[in-house]
């Protein structure tokens, strides 16, 4: 599903991450790593937000460098600590993402309802608490028909009840549409609720399967 080719991310001339050759099959993955190991850097690179050397291919054919638009249509991302323009409402942001990611009309309603965001989704995000903002960023990451969804630290700032709902969303998308997930977290994930395939780790400036 995802293939790294001579991936190299430098920070101020020093290699922060280096992945020569790595293929990841479709599935749900837990990316482990201590603070500062580079989990967010890795996910932001895969999302097309951070620049890097080398290439990343989706389904062996869509290159992040050569087909930037197609690639971004199929890879969605939710940041660990999301930031949006304060003056936009949740609904306006959802509309923006839905249009860009070519979501079906009304796709967001299921997510807004299950996460119980109806009360504030029409308010400007400047008035949101960090948990509300996090939930909104998760909804945005599920817009459209992505083949891969990257969630950076999805467990932080949201309450346990919402966490269960998020797990149900992930399971649903994986079972119905075969969407793959890369979830980064330094805490353990709920294996009971998630059909977790494998674990990956970011350490020693590289990214690999845990053997």
């Amino acid at each position: 599903m995802l293939k790294f080719q001579n991936f190299k991310k430098l920070y101020g001339g020093f290699p922060a991450l280096k992945v020569d050759e790595l293929s990841i099959d479709p599935g749900i993955y837990w990316i482990k790593g201590v603070n500062g190991s580079g989990k967010s850097t890795l996910l932001k690179s895969i999302a097309g937000i951070l620049a890097f050397e080398g290439d990343i291919l989706l389904d062996n054919s869509i290159s992040i460098k050569k087909q930037p638009v197609e690639y971004r249509k199929l890879v969605n991302f939710a940041e660990a600590e999301p930031i949006f323009p304060e003056f936009l409402t949740g609904k306006e942001l959802i509309a923006l993402f839905a249009q860009a990611k070519e979501a079906q009309a009304g796709q967001e309603q299921h997510y807004i309802d299950t996460m119980q965001m109806q009360a504030y989704v029409n308010r400007p995000v400047g008035t949101y608490s960090s948990g509300m903002l996090k939930k909104l960023s998760l909804v945005l990451a599920f817009m459209g028909k992505p083949k891969l969804i990257l969630l950076d630290e999805p467990l932080i700032t949201i309450d346990t009840a919402s966490l269960k709902i998020l797990n149900s969303w992930i399971a649903e998308r994986y079972n119905q549409e075969g969407t793959s997930f890369l979830l980064s977290s330094h805490q353990a994930l709920e294996h009971a609720e998630l059909p977790i395939a494998r674990e990956l780790i970011v350490e020693d400036q590289t990214f690999k399967f845990i053997v």
Binding site: I49, E70, K73, F77, E79, P82, I83, P85, L140
Partner: peptide
């Protein structure tokens, strides 16, 4: 505020 936009499929 718009760093998320690099992930949007806009040419």
């Amino acid at each position: 505020k718009l760093s998320f936009a690099r992930n949007l499929p806009i040419s």
